[in-house]
């Protein structure tokens, strides 16, 4: 099962809020978005590594889990948990071509499967086939929902460069 949706504000409250830019993000609020999309890691913030933020650091780690973003996709995988069972691959293949169009079920043209298990772990091999990669298609969560070990998570596509203050 995927983790509960994380809110940027909830993450932001745990950050140093100094906007020091050392993580490479313009603001701490932008860093919060990047943490949720797993394109940055908690360790990327030098302030958080200091003792005074120890509690925040642990809380953030717990909220975000051990998952790492699979490059070029929405998929966040905890590599130590993934057993390569392929349940995600199997449900994806079934759900891939069925879409809702104008409130009705419709078929989408056949596409190569986006997911594959390689060397015993999940890989995203054809991101462009994933329903999430195509604007206007249903937002699909099945692969993460059906993971028996909660190793897979999906994050929202990157926010267009944060319209924060």
């Amino acid at each position: 099962m995927p983790r509960k949706d994380l809110q940027p504000l909830q993450i932001y409250r745990l950050l140093p809020r100094t906007n020091c830019k050392l993580c490479g993000c313009p603001t701490c609020y932008a860093f919060a978005f990047n943490l949720i999309s797993r394109s940055r890691r908690v360790e990327d913030c030098p302030e958080l590594l200091k003792d005074e933020f120890g509690e925040s650091f642990r809380a953030l780690k717990k909220m975000l889990g051990e998952g790492e973003r699979i490059a070029g996709s929405d998929h966040v995988l905890d590599r130590s948990r993934c057993t390569g069972c392929g349940d995600c691959v199997a449900v994806c293949i079934r759900a891939l071509t069925t879409i809702t169009k104008n409130g009705r079920l419709a078929q989408r043209a056949a596409v190569p499967p986006p997911l594959k298990v390689m060397d015993g772990r999940l890989q995203v091999v054809e991101w462009s086939s994933c329903k999430r990669a195509v604007p206007g298609l249903d937002i699909c969560n099945l692969c993460a929902e059906k993971c028996p070990f909660s190793a897979l998570d999906l994050v929202k596509p990157e926010e267009p460069d944060q319209e924060d203050s």
């Binding site: 057993t83 298990v117 060397d119 015993g120």
Partner: peptide, 9 residues
């Protein structure tokens, strides 16, 4: 190794 689970790999 393609398709094998972690145990198989």
């Amino acid at each position: 190794i393609e398709n094998a689970c972690a145990k198989g790999a």
